[in-house]
Computed example of a mutant assay.
Amino acid sequence: MPAPSLDAVIVGAGAVGAACAYYATRAGLSVAVVDRGPVAGGTTGAGEGNLLVSDKEPGPELELALLSLRLWRELAASLPPEDAVEHEAKGGLVIAPDETTLTALRAFAAGQRAAGVEAREVGEGELASLEPELTKGLAGGFHYPQDAQVQPARAAAALLRAARRRGALVRLGEEVTAVLTDPHGAVRGVRTPRGDLHAPAVVNATGTWGGHLAALAGTHLPVLPRRGFVLVTEPLPPGLIRHKVYAADYIADVASDSAGLQSSAVVEGTPAGPVLIGATRERVGFDRTLSTEALRRLARQATALFPRLADVHALRTYCGFRPYLPDHLPAIGPDPRVPGLHHACGHEGAGIGLAPATGVLVTAALTGSEPPVRAEPFRPARFGSGGRPDGPSSSPGARP
């Protein structure tokens, strides 16, 4: 039986690949999604489903995040009930332990508000009304009502099902072993153990493994894994923790280039009852060895924010690998070094949140239409042979 005629092959069935498939099929393109594992089998399945603007300074990533927030709301409203993404508009609460940190947060939030973010300062008294279990004696914080959450694996699966209903071919458990090119170096599809898939475009949505797929195509993308652990508690009463709550030093950790272990408490409840406690960051390759030091730090920092958690049992932990690029911006769009190759990876810890907007940008590039936000800052060819971005750095600056 001949292979179907395709406009694009999307490699990766996580949140980003699923979003690329969803918006591409909405635009009338014929696509196949290929993944060596199951849906959400990589970084997406190890994520918390964060849809955040609170941790992003004004700039291209924040523009992408604001677009994605709107798109996630539209998806939650338009997808059928059986494809619920468990969208929760819970809001975020960033905590300042002292006046120095609160002053820094004020400056940070002022810039965000100018860019369209809703950020409201709250004093210690209002903190207690927003989160009754929060520790006392804090200087204050900022409430970000736009912050939200989805269930990441369900969200990826829902987008893929919607794409399939429009004709997308989904092939799981099938590893891409080669990117096919013509004599001039232009993409012509991919090779898998089940046979070749021919298309004039290939989308690299492989997350942490984005550098590997780029190499198969004969180009370079300096994606590195940044390991993170999450603690999961026993089920707790609904509403015990009402927002996504984190200490202000989390913002600095997100922007850091350090390869060493960093941890800052991010605490949130779930509809099922367990509390999720993150977040750690370290560059240790793909080493999945359990780090007792990382878990100890998470537990200590979480109980400092919520003393009630000191008496709660942690049932399990898991780790994942964020796809890190040196300037902390994803690579999205066509790679001029390999005509027909498009990248949609390197989102670090924001891939689920940024997935819909990424899908829209990739679809705009595939169809030759105008993207709704600036695409130039995410151009994949910005990295030289040394792996550093060219030109002035677009990475986040000093943060609280």
Rank of each mutant, 00 (worst) to 15 (best):
M1N: 15
D7C: 07
I10M: 08
A15R: 01
A18H: 01
S30E: 14
A32S: 12
V34I: 14
V34F: 04
G37R: 15
P38I: 08
P38L: 13
G41F: 06
G45H: 02
S54W: 06
D55I: 14
K56H: 13
P58Y: 12
P58V: 10
L64M: 15
L64E: 10
H87N: 10
E88T: 09
G91T: 03
I95Y: 08
V117T: 05
A119N: 07
A119C: 10
L127G: 06
L138Y: 11
A139S: 12
G140L: 04
Y144H: 09
Y144G: 02
Q146G: 08
Q151M: 10
A156T: 03
A156E: 02
L159Q: 09
A163M: 09
R165V: 13
R166C: 05
E174W: 01
V176K: 00
P183H: 06
G185Q: 01
A186N: 05
V187W: 00
D196N: 12
H198M: 14
H198A: 15
A201T: 03
W209Q: 08
G218T: 05
T219P: 02
F229T: 02
F229A: 04
V232F: 03
T233C: 05
L240Y: 08
I241E: 03
H243F: 10
V245W: 07
D249L: 06
Y250Q: 07
I251Q: 05
A255P: 04
S258Y: 08
G269W: 03
E282K: 06
R283C: 11
G285S: 10
L295Q: 09
A302M: 12
Y318E: 14
G320N: 06
F321L: 10
P330D: 03
P336N: 12
L341I: 08
C345V: 09
G359E: 02
E370Q: 15
V373R: 03
A375I: 11
P377N: 13
R382W: 07
F383G: 02
P389A: 10
D390W: 11
D390H: 14
P396D: 05
